[in-house]
């Protein structure tokens, strides 16, 4: 299996996604924006549908669309400050509606392409996609190293961060845009329906295991890698869809850890 070029590319992509996912996932959870990844994935589909309709590379229309929506999401989060999930619900359904509308305008045999974006295919990843992932991973790691302190303060409490002189609005918009671009790039690999699971579940697992902020991110990397690699091998062996297999493995890890922690608590009490 490791001799096949497509599997080598898939393993490289897994490694790179494992480096990115814990950062974005943890920040999304702590900003109470776990569903934002889903919203952006739905909107991404509209971007893909638009690209296919006007015969432009869907990756670029996709990135453009998520950037616009990521900015809009921040504006709506401010508008519905008390019930910020309202903005997620509105944009998620609008994105899906727009995707379906654009797809219906383009009846010329694009359902196969759309399916590819909907369910993903890590085994058909191209060399170009791997290179884009290398660039993205490098960019996100650099940003994290530079802005990790500012992000920590902002995530802890936005108002305190504002009084400390941080440009909260700009930082929020840039974070949303970065998340959107990441989703647009990894969506064809893992699929629009499961991209948020790959971002959120590893961070949720590491939050249960770790005590400190920095170790939460570090623990998240091997967890994502374990889920991605084992999911990939299982998918190859049994012919199951890779995105779904990876998600199920991650959910299983989460369940095992939750049970283990509960049992530890019970035995401590006895």
């Amino acid at each position: 299996m490791f001799l096949y070029g497509f599997m080598q590319r898939a393993f490289q992509a897994s490694l790179l996604i494992s480096l990115i996912a814990p950062f974005l996932g943890l920040f999304l959870i702590l900003r109470r924006q776990s569903l934002m990844a889903d919203t952006l994935a739905h909107v991404s589909l509209a971007g893909v549908a638009l690209g296919l309709l006007v015969s432009i590379n869907p990756t670029w229309t996709n990135i453009l669309m998520v950037i616009v929506i990521a900015v809009l999401l921040e504006y709506m989060r401010m508008l519905y400050r008390t019930y910020s999930e309202v903005s997620v619900a509105i944009l998620m359904s609008s994105g899906m509606a727009l995707a379906l509308f654009l797809m219906s305008l383009n009846q010329g045999g694009t359902s196969l392409n759309i399916n590819q974006f909907l369910f993903g295919s890590i085994v058909t990843i191209s060399k170009e996609q791997v290179w884009i992932l290398y660039l993205l991973a490098g960019f996100i790691l650099c940003l994290y190293l530079i802005f990790r302190k500012a992000m920590y303060v902002m995530i802890f409490d936005e108002e305190t961060a504002f009084t400390a002189g941080l440009p909260i609005k700009t930082m929020s918009i840039l974070f949303n845009v970065l998340t959107g671009v990441t989703i647009a790039i990894i969506m064809p690999i893992v699929g629009a329906l499961l991209v948020s699971a790959i971002l959120i579940i590893p961070a949720a697992i590491s939050m249960r295991l770790s005590r400190s902020f920095s170790s939460t991110i570090l623990i998240g990397i091997p967890i994502t890698l374990t889920g991605m690699l084992s999911g990939l091998v299982t998918s190859y062996e049994y012919g199951t869809p890779p995105g779904a297999t990876i998600t199920l493995i991650l959910v299983t890890i989460l369940a095992i850890i939750a049970i283990f922690k509960k049992l530890t608590q019970v035995f401590k009490l006895v």
């Binding site: 943890l26 702590l30 302190k149 920590y152 303060v153 995530i155 802890f156 409490d157 108002e159 305190t160 009084t163 400390a164 590491s206 939050m207 770790s210 005590r211 400190s212 902020f213 920095s214 170790s215 939460t216």
Partner: peptide, 24 residues
Amino acid sequence: GYVPQQVASFNVGFPSTVLELVNS
């Protein structure tokens, strides 16, 4: 230096030690 009345992130799940927070 601002101390608000309530800090929303003070929930059980927030993954940070006391030292990390005060360092910030």
